[in-house]
Simulated scan of single mutants.
Amino acid sequence: MAIFLTKESKILVQGLTGGEGMKHTRRMLAAGTDVVGGVNPRKAGRDVDFDQRTVPVFGSVRAGVEATGADVTVVFVPPPFAKAAVTEAVDAGIGLAVVITEGIPVHDAVAFHAYAKKRGTRIIGPNCPGLISPGQSNAGIIPADIAAKPGRIGLVSKSGTLTYQLMYELREIGFSTAVGIGGDPVVGTTHIDCLTAFEADPDTELIVLIGEIGGDAEERAAAYVAEHVTKPVVGYVAGFTAPEGKTMGHAGAIVSGSSGTAEAKKKALEAAGVRVGSTPSETARLVLARLGEAVGTA
């Protein structure tokens, strides 16, 4: 199995005809993703050829849903138009909206997250790499070839780059689903949402949780693990050497005083029974060791 995204998922790409939309649609198709259409009101009715696949362009998300049965959208729309794009997808009944766009104003993100939650649409992102269920579907910009093998690990990460690195280091084990939730101050799907889904997924045996400085999402995730997660969890927190008050990489990755430090997050996770690596490579070794222990006690 997988969480949120499976081989049955039918995907629209909002912003398909732009440079990033074209590039990553081609990659998604190469990974076996069922991209059923794109959305661009100015180019409705055209077809776009991608190697062996022709993808129709619709004038609206609703038109795409009605014509194809799409239930997922990937949003490559520029920041000033992202709020309207996500709202349009929600109104069309899309169940999962993967918002790749970075630089969306926080007040816009707050507004469309609240609207989506009220209407029952799950948001991944914004400012995220998306998610991949290897061997099934890939919605976003995660390179499918770094870990093409389905497997036993579930991964949830704030960082796109660290998502890729852990997937590469653990490629021989493979993943049920890897989710890049994004590093903005406001994101639609949280560590806790993914922990809940992975805990319920029978094919996920171990969960990797990647966090970074800023906010208290990792501390809240640690408390949730302690109370609700029975599967082993291995973690990594980026930003031990980050200077106070300086944004590092993501809009949400900033330490203010003693709040949001990597050390505090590491301590909270370890107190909940999560083994935390000091580097991505050590984190991968901890995963392999923990899986070996699980096999030994089975």
Rank of each mutant, 00 (worst) to 15 (best):
I3E: 03
L5G: 09
K7I: 06
S9E: 07
S9P: 15
I11V: 15
V13K: 06
T17P: 00
G18F: 09
G21F: 13
M22F: 14
T25K: 09
T25C: 07
R26H: 12
R26M: 04
R26L: 04
M28V: 01
L29A: 01
G32N: 08
G37A: 04
G38A: 06
R42F: 06
R42T: 07
K43M: 11
G45H: 06
V48L: 11
V48Q: 07
V48K: 04
R53K: 15
T54N: 03
T54D: 01
P56D: 06
V57D: 10
R62T: 11
A63E: 15
V65E: 14
E66C: 01
T68W: 15
T68F: 08
A70Q: 14
D71P: 14
V72D: 12
V75M: 05
P78M: 10
P78G: 03
P78T: 09
P80G: 07
F81H: 02
A82F: 06
A84S: 07
A84K: 14
A84R: 13
V86N: 02
T87H: 03
E88R: 06
A92G: 08
I94T: 05
I94G: 01
G95T: 10
G95V: 08
V99N: 03
I100A: 03
V106G: 02
D108N: 10
D108W: 09
V110F: 03
A114E: 14
A114H: 02
A116L: 11
K117M: 07
R119W: 08
R119V: 02
R122H: 13
I123M: 03
C128R: 13
G130N: 06
L131D: 11
G135K: 15
G135S: 08
S137Y: 00
A139G: 02
A144P: 15
A148S: 12
K149V: 07
R152D: 05
R152P: 01
G154A: 08
G154D: 10
L155F: 04
V156S: 01
K158R: 15
T161V: 12
T163H: 05
Y164K: 10
Q165C: 02
Y168V: 01
L170V: 01
L170Q: 00
R171E: 12
E172S: 10
E172I: 04
F175D: 11
F175H: 05
S176A: 12
A178Q: 11
V179W: 05
G180S: 15
G180D: 11
I181L: 02
G182L: 13
G182E: 13
G183S: 00
P185D: 08
V186S: 01
G188Q: 15
G188F: 08
A197C: 07
P202I: 13
D203N: 10
L206R: 07
I207K: 03
V208N: 02
L209F: 13
I210D: 05
I210K: 04
G211Y: 00
G214L: 12
G215S: 09
E227K: 15
V229Y: 08
T230V: 03
K231F: 11
V237E: 05
V237R: 02
V237H: 04
A238W: 00
A238I: 00
A242I: 00
G249H: 12
H250T: 10
I254H: 00
G257S: 04
S258M: 04
G260E: 00
E263K: 00
E263Q: 05
A268V: 00
S281T: 15
E282T: 10
R285Q: 12
L288K: 15
A289V: 08
L291N: 05
E293F: 12
A294F: 11
G296F: 13
T297K: 13
T297F: 09
T297S: 09
T297P: 00
